[in-house]
Design a protein around this nucleic acid. Structure first.
Lengths: 198, 198
DNA sequence: GCAACTACTTAATGACTCTAGGAAGCATGG
DNA sequence: CCATGCTTCCTAGAGTCATTAAGTAGTTGC
């Protein structure tokens, strides 16, 4: 009985690669076992179940994404940082569609989430990037949500073939970033805030 | 052998309801058959396969969504139309998560798409709404893509629990719409266009 | 060189998709 | 009233997948 040398980490890595290759929803325990040349049941020594495997892939990907963005925005500020952030985000998602899908499709349970900084780091990077636009809470959160939504929505639509018009997607994206920069520079004052400002 | 009186339409409707109830990815042929009190195989007289069923649900939902938005924006213009559009979009998605997921998860093949106006209508409504902001091509397409991305991204993140901060999501959404309005009013001129303007 | 642990196996169950072939309901024309 | 034929639904069965239980064969610690 030859041993394949599996570990939870190696299984997770392979699962992530498989997801990138065949799509996150086609990343099955069976296919993964096949890629290792072992039986399905063997994987259950390393991973609790499919849900657990997906969570692991999601955390792996969220960490990689945060690293990628972090490296891109380092030493930049303002529009420079914003576009670097956006392009890093999009590049990662397009290069690793299965991994990216994992970060979105899986909502890890709070306990797992608390033990990992992967998800939180991206949000922190967003806030850091937005501070150059002189936004303060709650505008920071609101603008951050809108930005993440725009990035995520754009990529999802792009990957799923939502942009059928002939207009070049890359050029469209760049123009969208120009627009978002303008938006951040002109972020409207909250009409419902009077006393709160210091 | 009592007949259940199934038709493709009735099956599609029930599938859409089931998707809303249990989630799009849990909308199975088996569960659907069970809800009708018939055997799995019986459904294959009305629907080619699971993929076909999903496409039908997607087209149904896309049509409903377009109707809903169309009714909301009728007789409105400018910011009024934009927020009506956005709120109709979000309301539908939140009220019918399974149907909405279908519109995103399924990319119907081009032949099916050509035979239906469901998807195209939403894009046309977007363009109509944007014309009040005096945008012309290709800005119309670029701004439209950014808007759809922002709406879609926001809703996806909201539904998947992506907004974990304590800040009220509804208020955040409204502020995001304020921001998008400002953005559309200040849509930047394309620096790469010189000769093209008349 | 034995005990304990771990990695991987076989075997089985139950959910699911889908096909083939058959029978029972329902309409039509004689 | 009945034969014809279409449609609706059935039974039966194959193949994929997730998951568990129980066992066996490497590997490690003493």
């Amino acid at each position: 009985m030859a041993r394949a040398g599996l570990t939870a980490e190696r299984v997770t890595e392979a699962a992530a690669d498989l997801a990138d290759a065949v799509g996150f929803e086609n990343m099955t325990v069976s296919a993964l076992a096949r890629s290792f040349g072992v039986k399905d049941a063997s994987l259950y020594s390393h991973v609790r179940n499919l849900q657990d495997l997906r969570e692991r892939v999601a955390l792996l990907a969220a960490g990689e994404l945060a690293d990628h963005i972090g490296a891109a925005v380092a030493g930049r500020a303002g529009k420079d940082a914003m576009t670097a952030f956006a392009n890093a985000y999009r590049d990662y998602a397009l290069a690793h569609p299965g991994r990216y899908a994992a970060t979105q499709a899986v909502q890890p349970d709070p306990a797992v989430l608390a033990g990992s900084t992967a998800y939180i780091r991206t949000i922190e990077l967003t806030h850091a990037m937005l501070r150059a636009y002189r936004l303060v809470e709650p505008d920071l959160t609101d603008a951050g949500r809108l930005l993440r939504s725009a990035f995520h929505g754009y990529i999802t639509l792009e990957v799923n073939g939502g942009f059928r018009h002939s207009r070049d997607v890359q050029r469209s994206w760049e123009r969208g970033l120009d627009g978002l920069h303008i938006l951040l520079e002109n972020w409207p004052a909250d009409p419902s805030r009077h006393a709160a400002e210091q």
